[in-house]
Amino acid sequence: MVDFLQNWVYLTGAMALVGIGLYIVLTNTNIFRIIVGLNIIDSGTNLFIVTIAWHPKSVMPIYTATNNLVVNGHVISADPLPQSLVLTAIVIGLGTTALALAIAVKIYQKYGTLDVRKIKEGDR
């Protein structure tokens, strides 16, 4: 049971976040909520990336005086590569969010609303 939980709980969480975020993006018409949805998808992605690097007996991938990463020629640390990828993914998510918010501010100024439907009507 513990094994089952260890294997699945983070994956389920990551997928739940992605699903919730995608649902928000698809159904909402408010630009701000869409941005929040995108952020939730990003969190899900990041959680997923960290999850594939982790195993229950892993140690942190940093050499210290007490932390040995390799035992008998066998690496026991968490996988450091996805952890470096997640850093990239976080920064990219931050950049996209910043730009999306800037566009949202500008849209609010020009249209006086953040509702996608009203913006479309405004363009007609």
Partner: peptide, 22 residues
């Protein structure tokens, strides 16, 4: 001002696309 709506739509679709790619 119509540039903004188009850019935002592109942003949303493209970020979801790149998430799927990732």
């Amino acid at each position: 001002r119509r540039a903004l709506g188009g850019a935002f739509k592109y942003l949303v679709v493209s970020s979801i696309g790149s998430t799927l790619y990732l």
